[in-house]
Design a protein around this nucleic acid. Structure first.
Lengths: 340, 340
DNA sequence: TTGTATGCGTTATCAT
DNA sequence: ATGATAACGCATACAA
């Protein structure tokens, strides 16, 4: 009887080799399905693997192969994202789907404090992942810097606000806002306001620019109210301000479906009918859009595809391809329901 | 000039040692803030670290220290969870918070296909994490089995449906349902129905049992409708069925806030006033509860604390403590708003 | 076809 | 206080 391993320790290739009566090299070859291993050796090794309960230490393997077959997803500001952003789940699934097909493991890392930030930066540069997808955020935070300094293949979902030279997957916010505002105009609305969020990033700025362009000369600056978040609560606040400013308002473009939902609640309270008195449109085509009363006309954002595209940008770099810098844009479409 | 490293490769301890004119051992001691290193050596090493741009390879470190300082979070069924469960974000943040304090990195792993399942199992057993938190789900899936077989410290959020001997963090669903139904009764409701979801797990069963107990002899079996998911859509369906069964129904206990929100929509459509004609209560105290019209009376579930507790169960095992098996229960409370 | 030797980047155990 | 040297678990070039 061969000396047994201590029961608290896991079986290694050495144990398998000893049990099968072959060398470590042969075991490794069987494990990696390489050619040039005899049927008898293979059978002995496979039996031994079962007998000793061997499972490969992927971390040790990565040390020598110099790749982990894992890609990190960095999620900043989880409070607002997870609790308010209805698209985050779809983005995550899109990323996972693309990575899964390429046999990469997605590992999601949440940054919820400065302490997290440092630890995640260490994890990312510590050899646990081969690349990273970063959701929105700014590139010049500690993690963005660490990623750039370490030269780790990366891609962003959404354009980071403070840097140009990075690959990212996004949508054309300007054109989308332009298009849906034009349709609002085409339905005969004449006093159209906007509840604008995220003006500190270019997605927000672009939506405002598209809105402004669509209205042309009839644009009225006082009918744009700025709110801090893409949230339902901010929709409540924003709509109240708009009604104060112009009680005759007959159209509203909300920066997100959640904001639009808040606006609808205020309008109902104020006794305005939608779409009779006021037409309301949103942005995202998230789960909100179907729950509102009435259902929301909105810009459909291909959240899953955005995630998938960002993941593909990373995978391409992992294959050694040059993906170039700047945005990779996906198409949006307008979903016209009954709120306008 | 010392031979430079190839620019595509990262600096190692050897590079730092060479640059600083000391041995690897000394560099390692500086890195780990150990005692017995002279000020001069320390200064030289620290300078060299900056000069060569050294960042530690944590994966290699884990190979020798035999711990990764990371804990995995396994999320099954992301479609329904991420898109419908409003508590998942809070749970995640609670887990992250507890791990962060103990200097562990949380890595979230999504299981969205059989392929994912195998890959995640390999990742978990592959030395990348020291322990795992598993959200709900069943324990006898490939991952649960792999975790058990490998003897990896684990804890569940919510009671897995098909296994007993695991530590988990949960709430007392029976008592919570009992309490809120009793309050519904106390407001004078006499024809009370329930929209029940998740009857395939004991959380769902326990809520039904608490409801039944609270009603006592006035319990009417036909006023319990079963729906497959904890979703808004199922709330619509369930409420329609209840109205068909008993148009005079004056109270509803919904298995979740999302279901309650759906029920409210149907009641409004049907011209019933809430809480005038019908009292409605939910479960979760999720973001839904404040958005509904009127705001929802519901059971507050400490989602963040549940995550935190599960993480602590894993951390305790990592410290070598015996956490015992079975549930670790957290208190719920009733939030009485205006829907009942 | 198989075994041996070496190295991945780090910590840890010895000496000194 | 510091420097060799040996692991950690695995893959791989080379020898046989």
């Amino acid at each position: 009887m061969p000396a047994a391993r201590p029961s608290n320790s896991r079986a290694t290739i050495n144990d398998v080799a000893a049990r099968a009566g072959v060398s470590r090299g042969t075991v490794s070859r069987v494990l990696n399905a390489e050619a040039y291993v005899s049927d008898s050796a293979r059978a002995a090794v496979e039996a031994a693997i079962l007998e000793v309960g061997y499972v490969r230490n992927e971390a040790a393997r990565g040390l020598v192969t110099r790749r982990s077959q894992a890609v990190g997803l960095i999620v900043h500001e989880p409070h607002s994202l997870f609790l308010e952003d209805p698209n985050i789940g779809s983005i995550l699934l899109g990323i996972n789907s693309a990575l899964s097909e390429a046999d990469y493991q997605l590992v999601s890392l949440v940054v919820d404090s400065d302490r997290d930030s440092d630890r995640v930066a260490g994890y990312i540069t510590g050899g646990f992942v081969d690349g990273v997808v970063i959701i929105s955020a700014r590139a010049h935070d500690p993690i963005g810097r660490a990623v750039a300094a370490a030269g780790i293949p990366a891609a962003y979902v959404g354009h980071p606000i403070d840097v140009e030279g990075v690959p990212y997957a996004g949508i054309d916010n300007y054109s989308a806002a332009l298009a849906i505002t034009r349709r609002l105009v085409a339905t005969g609305r004449r006093r159209i306001g906007m509840i604008a969020a995220g003006l500190d990033r270019d997605s927000g700025q672009d939506r405002l620019a598209g809105f402004t362009e669509a209205l042309g000369p009839s644009f009225r600056k006082e009918l744009v109210v700025e709110v801090p978040l893409y949230s339902h609560g901010c929709g409540l606040d924003g709509m109240r301000l708009l009604l104060d400013t112009d009680p005759e308002i007959d159209g509203v473009f909300a920066s997100s479906d959640a904001i639009a939902a808040g606006a609808l609640d205020v309008l109902r309270e104020a006794g305005r009918s939608v779409p009779g008195d006021v037409g309301v449109v949103g942005f995202d085509d998230s789960a909100w859009a179907l729950r509102t009363q009435p259902p929301l006309s909105t810009v459909h954002q291909p959240a899953g595809e955005l995630g998938r595209r960002a993941a593909e940008l990373v995978l391409a770099q992992l294959r050694g391809e040059d993906v170039g810098l700047g945005g990779s844009f996906l198409d949006t479409s307008i979903v016209w329901r009954t709120s306008a």
